[in-house]
Design a binder for these strands. Structure first.
Length: 310
DNA sequence: CTTACGGCCTGGGTGC
DNA sequence: TGCACCCAGGCCGTAA
């Protein structure tokens, strides 16, 4: 499941492989994860990919329209003005999304839903079994509006800002870390890893963290994200970067996915509980729960038979 | 107002 | 071999 480090890894790969390429044509398969499929077919052909940016868990393929192509080519990097005016392709990989260039002759993998034929003969393909991802062509105010919804970048935010952010909310710290409107790019893996490192229980309330705890959390979160980027992310299910390579950070996981295994610090067994609606892994000794916290077990979900044929 | 929670989308993996 | 079930992240509606 691509979070900030995985998306950053993919974005860097795409920068190496498709920057400057022109999109010749667009072929769509299933489109239920695309905001406005017709807009892709209408606007993308002819445009050139001028930049690949990461915004939280989103990738932004900045595009330069055909009529601005010449100035793009001659202005050697001075394409900032075009970028602010021109459209962008917004891509979210969801849980199972892959995006990478392939030789056009190569047979399509199963679940290939979008193909961009590039001017060098390759195809940029979007493959996503579950289609929990999202794709949208956006320009102008719509794009600005979209990006405005996001919270701070955890790699950029200052310690003071981070502390203020955390202490300003009464929600559980786990929920805050996952809230893309508060902090952009953190998902379940890196939330749990950073809370383990900071010795903070996921059910603690943000507003109840001490300044010292919040500063520690900020420091370890940034450190973990940076190290994960170096290792090209975590491949826990089927994450592959734009070169089709697996990441290596899953070998460093200390909490996530380690239910029943020994805590690397104290030897207690790592537990899993539902916090903020998400599976959360933590050490019950290193990360003492708040007094109220009871839900250590992921309730055996009362199975109500809901098969109503009307 | 903010936060909590359940349901929904989908299909690969698992366990019977 | 089949098949019911679980789970994941983001989003939305509703409740507190």
């Amino acid at each position: 499941m691509p979070e900030l480090p995985e998306v950053e890894t993919v974005a860097r790969g795409l920068r190496q492989s498709i920057l400057g390429r022109r999109i010749v044509s667009v072929t769509l398969g299933k489109t239920d994860f695309i905001d406005d499929p017709a807009a892709l077919e209408q606007h993308l052909p002819g445009q050139r990919i001028s930049a690949v940016e990461r915004y939280g868990k989103f990738m932004l393929l900045r595009l330069v329209p055909p009529q601005q192509t010449e100035s793009f080519q001659s202005s050697a990097g001075g394409a900032k003005n075009e970028n602010s005016v021109a459209g962008s392709l917004l891509v979210h990989l969801g849980m199972t999304g892959h995006i990478a260039p392939f030789p056009a002759a190569k047979p399509h993998e199963k679940h290939t839903h979008v193909c961009f034929l590039l001017d060098d003969g390759r195809e940029l393909r979007y493959i996503d079994a579950r289609r929990f991802g999202r794709m949208a062509y956006l320009e102008g105010p719509a794009l600005e509006e979209e990006l405005q919804e996001f919270g701070a970048d955890p790699l950029v935010v200052s310690p003071e800002e981070f502390v203020a952010l955390v202490q300003a909310h009464r929600a559980r710290i786990k929920a805050l870390l996952l809230d893309q409107g508060v902090l952009r790019g953190v998902g379940n893996i890196y939330a749990d890893e950073s809370l383990w490192r900071a010795k903070i229980h996921p059910a603690r309330l943000g507003a109840q963290l001490t300044t010292k705890q919040a500063r520690t959390l900020h420091r370890v979160l940034r450190d973990i994200l940076e190290k994960a980027i170096v290792l090209r992310g975590s491949s826990i299910s089927d994450f592959l970067d734009a070169e089709g390579e697996r990441g290596e950070y899953q070998r460093r996981h200390r909490a996530y996915g380690r239910e029943g295994k020994r805590c690397y610090r104290c030897g207690k067994l790592i537990r899993r509980a539902l916090v903020a609606g998400r599976s959360s892994y933590f050490c019950p000794r290193c990360q003492p729960p708040p007094k109220r916290f009871l839900g250590t077990l992921p309730l055996p979900s009362p199975k109500i038979n809901r098969r109503e044929t009307h």
